[in-house]
Write a protein that binds this DNA or RNA. Structure first.
Length: 576
RNA sequence: GCUCCUGUAGUUCAGCGGAUAGAACACUAGCCUUCUAAGCUAGUUACCCAGGUUCGAUUCCUGGCGGGAGCACCA
């Protein structure tokens, strides 16, 4: 079963193939959308055919237009300059695309199953640090990609990889022990740890003598043997366990607010020792070598410089652990492909890492999806510096704003309902804002823009859903009526149907590029088309035939909007 | 210095080599006795520069200029 849009395009190509002498490469013949709907609904530029037939493109368009007889879904065709423009019969289009949507419901636009088992790693927060809006972009993007890749027919396993060991942890524990040990604990322990870390970093910068103390703690933690260092290790290990849990509990809360779930959590602490073992093996085999005391692998011949695998004091690096993580992923979970969603600043590191895996004979499909970071107007955020916007603070402001807006519109609603609707509005505003720009656009965080629920925003799409829902409810829409699709005949309605028809192509494109912003833009365009329509044409107060046709049309719009929102990880609203 | 990303309206972003470069915010003027005004309608304003490839370049290539990021013991 093929989607309507593909059938239409195929038909156009067939018509041209029949009307033209020489064989042509079907992939080179593109079908585009004209800039203005009065020109046509779909168009074939004739430049390629012009080369083939050695006639001018205008001439080709002219001849084709005379030769081809319209029929079926193609109502008419017209040559305009070098373009051959096709007009779609709205009644035939409507019948095809609307019944397709009504039948497929949530699955409309879903692509065929390809049985690939993909592990998608994202969010990777560090314990003992604050979860800020930079981490938020990764979590929201990753979650959306999980939905998108699933909708494109893959089997996707979302996983998290938590940075619960390393230099930052040692730094935080050191600062805690030295400056905060005897202080009372605040309620939000996750946030508190972040503050300890930031403060520790600042103290450390001011006094270089402290560095030795921190390195010492890192050594003790990594030795992992409570008896070593005269029992000192145990003290740090216990503190690590206790504080680690504070952060993990905090992350759980955050993911719960965001509605993000993982099938599995990896921890850096579990791959540290296996990673060191791999590095030792590589050193023994001569694949890796010592350099200035550290262990490296030489990637110069691939133009990837030298890649550091272990520090000169024997403690592990991110790369050390990642070696073991990659093996763990493929061996334990039997996946076909491993994808990681990581900030583009680590593109070079990941290139080195992937090449290293290849060199050591681990030839598996590993992909990096890069995206640009979130910055503030007056510079990049850094946990070290403490100039970060925390997720929870941010969420609370947006939620507060949503509540004010909701209350002014629905004074009569019970508190519980106001809260629930506001929560969904806030999340949609936050998520949509992070997903509406392409992956390689830096997001300069603007609180005013984030607090706006107008225009190109999540709440706008939700609002559209609410209005449609309200109409359907008032009209007691059941979807059972027999529809006369000829009643849907305005240009605007046809445009809406064409937009609905293109949804499967949007899913494919978005998925191919790992870019949910394509979906966000599409949904906004569709919602805008509906809003114009809603303003211009009465639905309920029209004659029976027209009413039924318009109802099923707007119901189809709603279904696609809901579908798309769910890929973005946004819940629709029936009322707001 | 080398590598990657990037330069479009006052601002934030879209624009698979094709017809008149799109939105949103902001600003101006209208629209709630018809289905939710978180909305609709109309208006003002833009492709960094120089070459090249092409029938055609905002898009591709080269070189400038500007912005961001990365290049060994952080993750």
């Amino acid at each position: 079963m093929e989607y309507t849009i593909l059938k239409i395009k195929k038909q156009i190509l067939d018509l041209i193939a029949q009307a033209i002498e020489p064989d042509f490469d079907i992939d080179k013949l593109e079908i585009v959308v004209p800039p203005d709907s009065t020109l046509g609904d779909l168009a074939v530029p004739c430049f390629y055919l012009s080369k083939l037939t050695r006639k001018s493109p205008t001439k080709v368009a002219e001849e084709l237009s005379a030769k081809i007889n319209p029929g079926g879904i193609i109502k008419a065709l017209k040559n305009v300059g070098p373009y051959l423009n096709f007009f779609i019969d709205p009644a035939v289009l409507g019948k095809s695309v609307i019944s397709e949507i009504q039948k497929a419901k949530n699955d409309y636009g879903r692509l065929k199953i390809n049985h690939q088992k993909i592990m998608l790693e994202f969010s990777q927060p560090n314990t003992h640090k604050e979860f800020h809006i930079g981490h938020l972009r990764n979590a929201i993007l990753g979650n959306s990609l999980v939905n998108l890749l699933r909708f494109s027919g893959n089997k996707v396993m979302p996983v998290n990889y938590i940075g619960d060991v390393g230099a930052h942890v040692a730094k935080c524990l050191w600062a805690y022990d030295k400056f905060y040990k005897d202080k009372d604990l605040p309620e939000d322990k996750g946030k508190f740890l972040g503050q300890v870390y930031t403060n520790g970093s600042k103290k450390l910068e001011a006094n270089p003598d402290y560095k030795k103390e921190v390195d010492d703690i890192l050594q003790k933690l990594e030795s992992g043997d409570p008896k070593s260092f005269g029992g000192e290790s145990k003290k740090w290990l216990d503190l690590w366990k206790k504080t680690r849990k504070w952060s993990l509990d905090d992350f759980d809360k955050i993911y719960k607010i965001l509605g993000i779930q993982f099938d599995h959590f990896f921890y850096e602490s579990e791959v540290e020792k296996p990673g060191k073992k791999i590095v030792a093996d590589l050193l023994k085999k001569g694949v890796a070598e010592k350099s200035e005391g550290a262990v490296i692998i030489d990637l110069e011949k691939y133009d990837l410089k030298k890649f550091l695998l272990l520090k000169s004091d024997g403690s592990s690096l991110y790369s050390t652990k990642e070696l073991a993580l990659a093996k763990l992923k493929f061996e334990k979970f039997k996946i076909d492909e491993s994808i990681v969603v990581v900030d583009s600043r680590q593109s070079f590191y990941l290139q080195q890492f992937f090449k290293t895996m290849e060199v050591i004979g681990f030839k598996k499909k590993m992909v990096h999806i890069p995206y640009e970071f979130v910055t503030l107007k007056d510079g990049a955020m850094a946990s070290r510096e403490g100039n970060v916007v925390l997720f929870k603070d941010f969420y609370n402001s947006v939620f507060g704003r949503a509540k004010i807006e909701t209350k002014t519109r629905h004074q009569e609603w019970p508190e519980k309902k106001t809260e629930e609707v506001s929560r969904k509005i806030a999340l949609s505003a936050i998520k949509f804002n992070m997903l509406k720009v392409g992956n390689n656009s830096i997001i300069t965080f603007d609180i005013d823009e984030s607090l706006s629920f107008d225009g190109f925003s999540g709440p706008y799409i939700q609002y559209t859903c609410s209005r449609i829902n309200s109409v359907l409810k008032k009209a007691k829409f059941s979807g059972l009526a027999k529809i006369d699709y000829a009643k849907i005949n305005s240009d605007l309605e046809k445009e809406i149907m064409l937009q609905l028809a293109s949804w499967p192509e949007i899913v494919a494109e978005s998925s191919k590029n790992y870019d949910p912003s394509i979906i966000a833009k599409y949904l906004f365009d569709l919602a805008r088309l509906f809003s114009s329509f809603y303003q211009k044409f009465p639905i309920i107060n029209s004659s029976k035939d027209i009413k039924e046709a318009r109802l099923i049309l707007v119901d189809s719009v709603r279904k696609v909007l809901v579908n798309g929102l769910s890929i973005l990880g946004i819940e629709p609203l029936d009322q707001m």
